[in-house]
Design a protein around this nucleic acid. Sequence first.
RNA 1: GGGCGGUUAGCUCAGUUGGUAGAGCGUUCGCUUCACACGCGAGAGGUCAUAGGUUCGAAUCCUAUACCGCCCACCA
Length: 720
Amino acid sequence: MNKFLSAYQAEKEEGPIYERWEKSGFFNPDKLPGNRKESFTIIMPPPNANGSLHAGHALFITLEDIMIRFERMRGKRALWVPGADHAGFETQVVYEKKLEKEGRSRFGMDPKQLYDEIYNFTIENKKNMEAQVRSLGASCDWSRSRFTLDPDIVATVQKTFVKMFADGLVYRGQRTINWCPKHQTSLSDVETENVEEKNPFYYFKYGPFEIGTVRPETKFADKYVLIHPDDARYKNYQHGQKFEVDWINGPITATVIKDTAVDPTFGTGVMTITPWHSAVDFEIAQRHQLEIEQIIDWRGKLLPIAGEFAGLNIKDARPKIVEKLRAKGLLIKVDENYMNVVKRCYKCNAMIEPQVKDQWFVKMESLAKLALTAVDEKKVRFVPDNYEKVFRYWMEHALDWNISRQIVWGIPIPAWICDECHEGRTSINETIPKCQTCGKEMRRDTDTFDTWFSSGQWPLLVLNYPDGEDYKKYYPTQVMETGHDLIFRWVPRMIIFGLYLAKQVPFHTVYLHGIVNDAQGKKMSKSKGNVTNPLDLTAKYGTDALRLGLVVGNPPGADLALQESKIKGYKHFANKIWNASRFVLENIKDADLTVIPNLLTVHQTQLKQLNEITQEVTKQLENLRFDLAADQIYHYFWYSFADLILEETKLIFQKPEPEINLEAKKSAQWTLYTILATSLKLLHPFMPFVTEAVWEHLPTGAHKTQNLLMIEPWPISSGV
RNA sequence: GGGCGGUUAGCUCAGUUGGUAGAGCGUUCGCUUCACACGCGAGAGGUCAUAGGUUCGAAUCCUAUACCGCCCACCA
């Protein structure tokens, strides 16, 4: 036990206190005292094990810990399951940067060697990350901590894939995917960014037509001319009609195709298509069973079909091709102010090249419907509720989900492939199967799953679905607390997998917090240099101060400007709690804390006010308004208890010995004890360290029944 | 192009069913009062973006406008 010094020293108290909590075993709900019927479970969004925690992590740890501590004190079996995500592509990108610095490259490396290196890197980071989670006071059950690459988790994820294939929800298809030429992998739609850019828009003469494009470098093999069927200007051209065109590398035979996908009001209302390098064009080509051909290779260079331009990088090729078309008299005009949207890799900013590739896809339509129905039936609610709209939008517009990634860092897709017949077969079995079409031996799929395929199953996985005790006891969970930026990346996938596998939503409430920005409200980014490390702040002001600074004034869903001055203010509050407590403890040393004395009217009034505050704080916590709950108890403790009540009672205690009214003194002592003990309980979820530190010094009595404040029952209507 | 959020004190933000504006930091004056100077007391500072409307009463509800921010997007 540390000395009761005149200033609260967070750095000395926090470590030992966390150790006491962890050693007590009470982070594990199965070890909590008393007969606890109801469970309250939160699955922690597993931080990526590839770096340090950022301010957003500090926020979610604080919010979830508040809920867990509150419900634990309310007598529930509070379970908070921590974990770590291998974060497939993200981690591989981080590691690739590290390799780059060392003058190495992933390409050409033995996959096994690369995997092992990233594995060691990740495990090291994971340890570091877990220590940081601890330092933020997280009362999560480390005995249940899981990693997305734990062997049993990998096995379950692979089983899910096999099952989905058997159920017709997964298919192998040759479809347009987002290809990152730098990272040499496909990406899902949520892993790309749409950036608006100004690009020249070229008008070319194409036979009797005029066509427009921003990407002349893809046009070598364009031999279909698309026209809207109702476009009167071109009514003389028939669907399927063929004609000769002089094009980039000489004459080609073009075919007229009529399709409603063409917007007659855009450009000239005529376009040619490049199915291999455009999702829209690919769909059109499929509809009309047109030939498709690859123009650009996987590195972003032109293929032999480009003739003299073959081997050129598309960026360098574009002006040259335009020049050639101009020389041939085929360039009509250029619009230099055209704005269009370009897809870029969200990690390296490289231009995404749509490519057609054999990949595994999840059929989303029926699964999305499951999720929508669950929302309709109010099985899941969103806090704040406007996110329900966003969720619905995504589920109503769900595109099939590409889950294949051409990277080693991830869970291997348990499948066999025949490249010739485009056949894929799912199997966890290691014996090499033969292709049913051509009879050749198939090869093991070397791709890994998109990270969201495993993290989407996270609530099930950590509770050991389908046979685990925890799954039976703790599924479905109560709250999923995560950032609003994950409303379409992660949340729908968890709901879908929960409904598909367990037939139940994985959680009933989705609480979404905002983005933690810098003090001016600007997005934190490494390039701007305005990133704040939360652990620097806790070192300076204490964890409790950071926690309160993150919570107060931060309603659900709102983005937050992280202000150091605010955190400093709450450090002062931690000190206030400490010193007000010292004063109370000094003055109740000789008090009997087990029996309620005759209370003076003034003290009855004060205790009544305490009851009101207790009710208010409880109500706000139940409403998930942590911002309001924290502010209320803060305000009460400082401005009512410390400033008014302590000052008044001081007068009673500080009278010279003979003048002290014993009845008044007893009444005051009981009141101070009650208010302090109750306030500490109310404050504990928000500021667990300083409250626990004070609790240690508080003598046992009617309001202190446990050595650890962490498991003390939540005040109902205590005091009177 | 579509959607969402915001506009309240010098700064960053709260204000939960409508009833004479709050927090942190900053700021002015006075206090070495034996819990706390990481403090105490007293104070300054806001026509709650703009214009209408509903109401006895609106920062709070409705409509429109302006500006800011975020997210999404297969018009070549």
